[in-house]
Every structure is written in structure tokens, then in C-alpha cells.
């Protein structure tokens, strides 16, 4: 479970473009490639949903 939370956290950091060096080293030493791929896909989907939701919200405000 911990490895998943760390992967999701790191993917979020990569979306923002900011990551601490300590976390980067931890990911490269202990992380698993497949976990990062799945976490990346999940977070991309979550990002798309949130953009869609945001646009719907703005449209409601406009109408």
C-alpha cells in the first residue's frame, strides 16, 4: 500500500514539476516501474475528469 501511495504522490509531484531530491532517490532505488505506469494512468484520468468538471462548473456560472 505504501509503495502505491508513494507512487501516486510522486506522479502528482511530476504533474506540478516539483520534486524533492530525497523522494527522487527513494523512487529510483525502491520504486517499481509497473506501479508508476498504473499510477500515471490513474492520475491522468483523474486530471481529465477534474478539467471536465471545472469546465462544467464554469459553464454553469456563465449560463
Amino acid at each position: 500500500m505504501k509503495i502505491w501511495m508513494q507512487a501516486i504522490w510522486s506522479v502528482m509531484a511530476s504533474f506540478l514539476g516539483v520534486q524533492s531530491n530525497a523522494n527522487r532517490e527513494r523512487d529510483f532505488e525502491h520504486g517499481r516501474f509497473s506501479v508508476f505506469v498504473v499510477a500515471g494512468l490513474l492520475m491522468t484520468f483523474a486530471f481529465l475528469i477534474s478539467v471536465f468538471g471545472l469546465v462544467q462548473l464554469v459553464m454553469m456560472y456563465v449560463k
Binding site: L16, G17, V18, Q19, S20, N21
Partner: peptide, 13 residues
């Protein structure tokens, strides 16, 4: 100093 994650997150968010 090399990094300050908090500051970097603030000026991105």
C-alpha cells in the same frame, strides 16, 4: 542551498 520544495510548490500553485 539546493532545493526548497515548499517554496517551489507555492510558486507553482
Amino acid at each position: 542551498w539546493h532545493e526548497n520544495t515548499t517554496v517551489e510548490v507555492v510558486w507553482t500553485v
